[in-house]
Design a protein around this nucleic acid. Structure first.
Lengths: 184, 184
DNA sequence: AATTCATAAATTGTTAACAATTCTGATTGA
DNA sequence: TCAATCAGAATTGTTAACAATTTATGAATT
């Protein structure tokens, strides 16, 4: 469900029906309500009493720039911390996540690109702090909901390649710089 | 429930039982689960599959400073926007919220102080942007969970009095400055 | 005394039924 | 024609029962 939202499959303000989702995922309305509630709290959906949830309207440019700067400072902090104690395993994981993102860009599949973009960023945030990870999610889900509607796949691939290369080279300054270019 | 959490009534890592809450609030487990899920997504509780939720562990000093700076930049933006088009009614609301906070400080009731502190800040954030309001909640709930364990009531009262006075005087610079002093 | 294992109790997860509310569309009356 | 009204249909809200899982208990074994 979240992947549908961040990839922009659903129109803004479109209402979400619990029963339909329950059938789609082969479960009852209870767990569906749980999921919708989580997405509401993350900001991807909006809830109105007795009317259910609908897809959030996009951020204004003003709001977007505030959120972007918050997300950037959060990610910069996490990336610094992450790079201080990076293991061999982290190397492999990052390479894998990057590879997946690039292949999604190649096949120009928007839902997958959006999802793997998030997954890559999420990795270093999560490694740095689980507390910050949940906050980061709330910021990122909203930003990507608009971004995913006007992105160029080639740019996404090359931007992230630069970032990951710098990380693997343990070049903190360069990594932070490229991250800043990417998180608009 | 949220007020219990932000006021520090519950110990860290303490597990929360759905049945007990259901009885306390005179309802069934369904709505209780909804509420717990929301608080989890806000970051006040931590969920573990098949084990329920427990109170979140406090932020480290490092995490705290990152979150604080994010919250400050968000609140400064909202306060600026709010002050640009403030109505007579906003005047009254702010005065009322401040009055309530001060009286809670006088009676030294920690749960109420924490709740009304948040309510005051929340007012200008909510007036500026409902999108930013939900993000702000997630940041603030966590910060206050630690703050409420070591606060001095007199300071809280006077700090907020200064802020609100500056706002009512339409002195943006002063308001932002005092806000910066308050949101550590 | 410590460990293992089986059993029981407590707790969370899921479901279906029912209640309450909102939405829809036809009917009525001016 | 238009607005108001009223059933019914669709949707969300709540509940209690049951299923699945985890935790606690205590006896048996080493």
């Amino acid at each position: 469900m979240r992947s549908d939202l961040i990839s922009g499959k659903l129109d803004f303000d479109q209402p979400i029906r619990e029963q339909r989702l329950a059938e789609r995922f082969g479960t009852s309305r209870g767990p569906v309500r749980d999921a919708l509630l989580r997405l509401t709290q993350e900001g991807a959906l909006v809830y109105e009493p007795n009317k259910g949830v609908r897809v959030t309207s996009p951020l204004s440019d003003e709001e977007r720039s505030v959120v972007a700067s918050m997300r950037l400072s959060l990610e910069k902090h996490c990336l610094s911390k992450f790079m201080k104690n990076m293991s061999e395993n982290d190397h492999r994981e990052l390479s894998l996540l990057l590879e997946r993102l690039i292949s999604a860009c190649d096949s120009a599949s928007l839902p997958e690109v959006a999802e793997r973009d998030l997954a890559l960023h999420r990795y270093w945030v999560a490694q740095a702090s689980s507390h910050l990870e949940t906050m980061w999610l709330g910021l990122s889900v909203r930003m990507i909901m608009k971004y995913s509607r006007l992105a160029k796949y080639e740019d996404i691939a090359s931007e992230h390649q630069r970032i990951v290369e710098a990380i693997l080279d343990k070049d903190l300054d360069k990594a932070l710089y490229f991250l800043g270019e990417n998180v608009i």
